[in-house]
Nucleic acid binder design. Sequence first.
DNA 1: CTTTAAAATGTAATATTATAACATTTCATT
DNA 2: AATGAAATGTTATAATATTACATTTTAAAG
Lengths: 162, 162
Amino acid sequence: MTDKIDNKLVQGKHNHHRCIDHALQVAEQVCLKKKLRLTKIRRQVLQLICENHKAVGAYELLDLFREFDPNAKPVTIYRSLDFLMDIGLVHKIESQNAFIACLQAEKQHKSVILICGQCKNAFEIDATAVYENLFALSKQAQFEPQYLTLELHGLCVNCQKV
Amino acid sequence: MTDKIDNKLVQGKHNHHRCIDHALQVAEQVCLKKKLRLTKIRRQVLQLICENHKAVGAYELLDLFREFDPNAKPVTIYRSLDFLMDIGLVHKIESQNAFIACLQAEKQHKSVILICGQCKNAFEIDATAVYENLFALSKQAQFEPQYLTLELHGLCVNCQKV
DNA sequence: CTTTAAAATGTAATATTATAACATTTCATT
DNA sequence: AATGAAATGTTATAATATTACATTTTAAAG
Ligand SMILES: [Zn+2]
Ligand SMILES: [Zn+2]
Ligand SMILES: [Zn+2]
Ligand SMILES: [Zn+2]
């Protein structure tokens, strides 16, 4: 399984095993704390999402998952995604119908997802100030803000040259 | 056709005929300027989107459109939506797979869409500062920003009470 | 006024994304 | 061991969107 990881594909050079391990450890912690069950299926789905930093579609994930269970059905993936999203371990990229693992699920965060249109890598950076700004703006318009969809499309540093 | 408009449904009280007329006039102007063809079908689709300020799905739109042409197919709607979105007359709300008419298509604008989770009304307010902030932030992360998906979910003023 | 080529539309089929409904199994607790 | 809630299995289907190719409409040229 680990030999599928292709470090050339991820944003910047880094030991990607650490990302996966960290994400899985955080997942354990979060579930322990909330008394939720990180079952085998859920862990496998999370692991697959973590295999690179690209946004991954549910059916793409299903194909990958079928190496664990050839008979897996869409609903299995969607159920796991729902579970993982509910507890903040996975984010949905609405503009792509795709999913990424959150790399900072252990702490509360208000972030923008930067999505490279070329390589599809997606990563989060803090945008707390932006949230505050927008919430304030919307309140001025007598709107009661609840949650924000914030996705910035562009080119990552690796894809800008040429 | 006009007697379908229900002003109780729209954000605040206003003469909704003006919204439709304005949107259609702007559409004419934009197409004239860009030498594009605002065909009957495209105008009808835009008109239907304008009939209220709610986000409307493509198939919902198709149902409405079938009062013009009972044999209309999904692709007709999607083609018109693509055309209207390309020239900024319509925006897609990614988090809802739904569409709204832009009320300020005549001028360049950087806005956030405020979406009421209760009544589904959606309207835009200016967010130029937020764009600049985010673009600057992302550049610091060596990301080249291109376009932003910015959708704020919450409750509109009419839906906050009780 | 024809010819022509591009744009728009018609038509059918299909791809992609996501959920509903109900049966069965697993698991923690009693 | 009994119990009930949570998770999973299984089947079907809903909802959203696109592809491919035929035909018609339109604007512009000759
Ligand atoms: Zn996150
Ligand atoms: Zn890239
Ligand atoms: Zn707009
Ligand atoms: Zn409302």
